[in-house]
Design a binder for these strands. Structure first.
Length: 237
DNA sequence: CGGCTTTGACCAGCGC
DNA sequence: GCGCTGGTCAAAGCCG
């Protein structure tokens, strides 16, 4: 973690969770810094940036990118606070967290389990029994790099600047909410994302990006060019 | 009519 | 080999 991130951590601006080291750092943004409008509304650029950044990070091999991303998001959140429209308040605390998994290393199932595992036992690996880990490893295969994050939102799909087409929906075992599968509509772009709600807390939406876009975000976003932090997009793209 | 969502069918990987 | 599960396909329907 960079000195800036460490300083913010010291100030309690965000907390770094002691979740899975294999998955990289896991940051949770308190509501004070996630003071963003409801997801999906016209002013959701900050969340869009986060989602876009998440997609970018999926294939990012730059060391400490999680910390870099965090700093960027924090500065973004701070700048957004000044232009926040009270009329579009979410009506409750907003929480956004994200983490970066190692590219081609952890399958979604494992990420899911890690996210769901609150308790990390001494004898367990990320809260997953050794026997199960063995099975998981056996099933592991090379996949597109992926990156997932969760947001507290009443809408499922984040507006990340790209156009997505839903190609499937599945009710996964032991969950009440179906998982939706989306694919980037751009030709030759094989990026996918999965969206589902956390079983323990249906208010939390987990979005997983897989792959890397081979194009820029679509320009049909209402006012993306007018956003003050459009440079953030440039940072990531 | 084109683009999108829905949804049942199908397939592959895995455990037993 | 069989059953379970997650992921994908594709036909049908919806909507602007």
């Amino acid at each position: 973690m960079s000195s800036t991130s460490q300083a913010m951590l010291n100030q309690g601006l965000f907390e770094e969770q002691e979740i899975p080291t294999q998955m990289g750092n896991f940051f949770i943004f308190p509501s004070s810094l996630s003071n963003c409008p409801p997801l999906g509304c016209h002013q959701s650029l900050k969340v869009s940036n986060i989602a876009a950044a998440a997609a970018s990070l999926a294939a990012d091999a730059v060391p400490n990118s999680a910390a870099t991303l965090t700093e960027t998001l924090l500065s973004s959140a701070t700048s957004q606070k000044h232009r926040h429209d009270p009329a579009s308040d979410f009506g409750g605390p907003q929480l956004l967290s994200l983490h970066r998994s190692s590219a081609n290393f952890w399958a979604w199932e494992e990420v899911n389990e890690c996210l769901g595992s609150k308790k990390i036992g001494v004898d367990d690996h990320l809260g997953v029994p050794a026997m199960k880990m063995k099975r998981i490893k056996a099933r592991r295969k090379v996949r597109e790099p992926r990156f997932c994050f969760k947001t507290m939102s009443d809408v499922d799909v984040l507006d990340d600047g790209y156009k997505w087409r839903k190609y499937g929906q599945k009710v996964v075992k032991n969950t009440q909410h179906p998982r939706s599968y989306y694919r980037c509509t751009q030709d030759n772009c094989r990026v996918k994302k999965r969206v589902e709600r956390l079983a323990e807390d249906p208010r939390m939406v987990i979005t997983t990006y897989e792959g890397r876009h081979v194009h820029s975000p679509s320009h049909d976003l209402e006012d993306s060019s007018q956003q003050p932090n459009s440079q953030l997009n440039n940072f990531f793209w």
